[in-house]
Nucleic acid binder design. Structure first.
Length: 330
DNA sequence: AAGACGAAAGTGGTTGA
DNA sequence: TCAACAACTTTCGTCTT
């Protein structure tokens, strides 16, 4: 009885499908007679490929309706839930027991049932964050998310930082160090790995840890996890500082050019990359007549004016930028 | 008055013995 | 482990615009 019903249903669906395609194949544009009909599923429209007339604007999308974020998702045909994410301590694979005091039909629960659900909810929470390590991880990962969003870091950095932190936790590197310093160090490393560097000052300012502490943790991460962190490129900083100072593309381009020359002249090794970027921006802002003061630039780069000065004097000397060029402008 | 400059002293990290 | 060192910071007085 049930089987025959299912079979009949399948047959009806199959026939409809065939009919639909047959219709489409035979369809011709009433305006120009062309047979090249295009279906635009994102708009739900049937359009003539020749003259552009919309033949139908209420098409039913017969494509798959399950959402998938990966090949395996696609195979499972899931219809609910978030994508699996490394930024959640349990990868988002968890169950929440709702707090509504109703059953599936909307009827209020009896007192016994309420008590039972309360107990279940409590145990669910306990098993979800079973160990102190898991609680720490959950706390740290939400902190990574918070700091990264405050610094305007992209998703890729958040995920990299989460992976680094998890590896550090697995290697028991967190023990004896503060969580917030380790979180900051993970973000610092991730940002550098993803080539959107933020300075230690900027990151440690978002936590309760000092720059020193974060730096120490960072070195531990690099050596223990064997991270291959590329040397911070002053050019990455120059672009960001430039836009923060509202400098034109021309000034930034000139600064990058200067950095390139400085690198070739060999005066960049061992120097603070933020200082170099700041000095180049300072020089190019003067040369391009969009001058910013040393203080403004130093503030954005979170270094002192003295460093800006020292760097730009060096640049001036080795790149042969004449003082007379300043005189012309001022 | 604001910005630039430079000297002097102090700090924290790196390196090599 | 420790001293030497380079880079950077802080502070402050002076000069220039």
């Amino acid at each position: 009885m049930v089987w025959s019903g299912v079979c009949m249903m399948a047959q009806v669906l199959e026939e409809n499908k065939v009919d639909r395609f047959a219709d489409e194949a035979l369809l011709k544009c009433p305006e120009c007679g062309s047979a090249s009909i295009i279906t635009d599923m994102s708009r739900g429209e049937l359009i003539c490929g020749n003259c552009g007339v919309v033949l139908d604007d209420h098409l039913i999308d017969s494509g798959p309706e399950w959402r998938s974020f990966s090949f395996t998702d696609d195979q499972k045909r899931n219809r609910t839930g978030l994508p699996v994410s490394v930024t959640l301590h349990d990868k988002g694979l968890t169950t929440h027991i709702n707090n509504t005091q109703q059953d599936a039909f909307g009827k209020p629960l009896s007192v016994q049932q309420k008590n039972r659900m309360q107990r279940l909810r409590r145990w669910q929470l306990r098993t979800r964050l079973r160990t102190s390590a898991e609680r720490n991880l959950a706390y740290a990962l939400s902190d990574i998310e918070r700091i990264s969003s405050q610094l305007g870091l992209p998703k890729s950095v958040v995920e990299t930082a989460a992976i680094i932190y998890k590896q550090a936790a697995a290697k028991k590197l967190i023990r004896g160090r503060s969580i917030s310093a380790m979180v900051a160090a993970s973000i610092y490393a991730a940002a550098r790995l993803r080539r959107v560097p933020r300075s230690l000052e900027e990151i440690s300012a978002m936590t309760r840890s000092s720059r020193k502490e974060v730096g120490r943790c960072y070195r531990v991460l690099v050596s223990e996890l064997k991270l291959k962190v590329p040397v911070a490129d002053p050019a990455d900083y120059a672009v960001r500082f430039g836009s923060e100072l509202h400098l034109s593309g021309q000034v930034i381009r000139k600064a990058l050019d200067m950095l390139h020359k400085a690198k070739r002249a060999g005066i960049t090794t061992g120097k603070d990359p933020t200082g170099l970027a700041a000095a180049c921006l300072y020089l190019s802002s003067i040369l391009e007549n969009e001058k910013r003061t040393q203080r403004e630039i130093a503030q954005v780069a979170s270094i002192t004016e003295v460093t800006v000065r020292n760097r730009y004097k060096e640049l001036q000397q080795s790149l042969g930028i004449e003082i007379s060029m300043f005189d012309n402008i001022e």
